[in-house]
Design a protein around this nucleic acid. Structure first.
Lengths: 137, 137
DNA sequence: CCATATAGCTATAGCCACTGGAGATAGAGA
DNA sequence: TCTCTATCTCCAGTGGCTATAGCTATATGG
């Protein structure tokens, strides 16, 4: 039997976050000791590791809820799981694309300034005047 | 004189967002009509465009507050402005780096599955077992 | 002059996924 | 037994909006 602190150390999920996942229904309400403290088993650790891993990959709580539900039915087709993962991949790619535009624009802005004072500063001027930009963002 | 709606249309900043910026102190409290409605001038539109542009580039409200303060002193050196922009550029690059790791891992996971059922699904299996991953994330 | 439609007002709550604090109780080791 | 750490519940805060409720102002058409 593990305390919430043991579980936290083993999974690197913070204690309040474990309680939060319980509240959100990702983890079943844990068994309790006589003194009302949560006690966990190996099975709980595996489930929490699954959640942690999915969170690290950026899946939302809702998506994880679905993945856990799928995981509970080993014989059902895995097309839904693929769909969720592909959607997540697309989200990540979209974010990267947007950030790359920003990177480009910020890079241009920060290297272009040859003034010394705010009144000639290309950074400030660019922010004030969108037409100096090369891309939509 | 512009109403808040005019300002919103011209800058593509939503009405509640304009009020929010006022509350956050990015915009000065607007003049009011007899009936207590906000009225704006060209100067306000320029300031809001500056804010909008900075937000589009991902600067935080706090960073924008600093940039606006710098902008109010045209004769002061622009090193601080550069510093803020470079910090933002670094943040963007860090985010891109993290997302690229996720993209790689998600791409690997979603294309590797050759099972039909959850019990053989590489997506699910990968989430459950971190050792199948190629990178830390 | 009046009815209506649209736009605006304030105040407050909700979003996501946690994180931190207060104040109280439990459990483990000396 | 004492003390220290871990845990408990409950609640508030984070950022940057966004939405709702219930009200008032302004513009337009007849």
């Amino acid at each position: 039997m593990l305390t919430i602190g043991d579980l936290s150390r083993q999974t690197r999920v913070k204690v309040p976050t474990i309680r939060y996942y319980e509240q959100m229904g990702l983890l079943a309400a844990a068994e309790r000791s006589e003194g009302n403290q949560r006690r966990y088993e190996k099975k709980d650790r595996e489930r929490l590791s699954f959640i942690k891993h999915a969170r690290d990959l950026g899946f939302t709580i809702e998506a994880i809820r679905e993945l856990l539900a799928l995981n509970a039915h080993p014989e059902s087709p895995c097309a839904d799981a693929h769909h969720i993962a592909e959607r997540q991949l697309q989200l990540v790619r979209d974010k990267i694309a947007k950030l790359r535009l920003l990177e480009k624009e910020l890079g241009r802005i920060t290297t272009r300034c040859d003034g010394d004072h705010i009144k000639d500063c290309y950074v400030i001027e660019s922010l004030a005047n969108h037409e100096l930009c090369r891309s939509d963002h």
